[in-house]
Amino acid sequence: MKARVTVMLKSGVLDPQGKAIGQALNRLGFSGVADVRQGKIIEIEFAETDQTQARSQLAEMCEKLLANTVIENYAIEIKSS
């Protein structure tokens, strides 16, 4: 099974990298850019074939390692088996 985990800083947590990217886009002439947030995408291939099992394993992976839930949210997307 393949899954994609997206990790983003929680809203309300200052994202200086996103801000810097937004400023750079403005300098490039994209004057309509209002807000940019930067995150991470982690793609995982693993043996589990059961969707429900996979989802609960992925949630555990996120809680234990992939995301720091003090500052980050995560979203799990199961792509295919």
Partner: peptide, 15 residues
């Protein structure tokens, strides 16, 4: 990161 201390250390605001 271990949870022995609360909070987190993020990228410097100045980058």
């Amino acid at each position: 990161e271990t949870g022995l201390l609360p909070g987190a250390l993020m990228r410097n605001a100045s980058l």
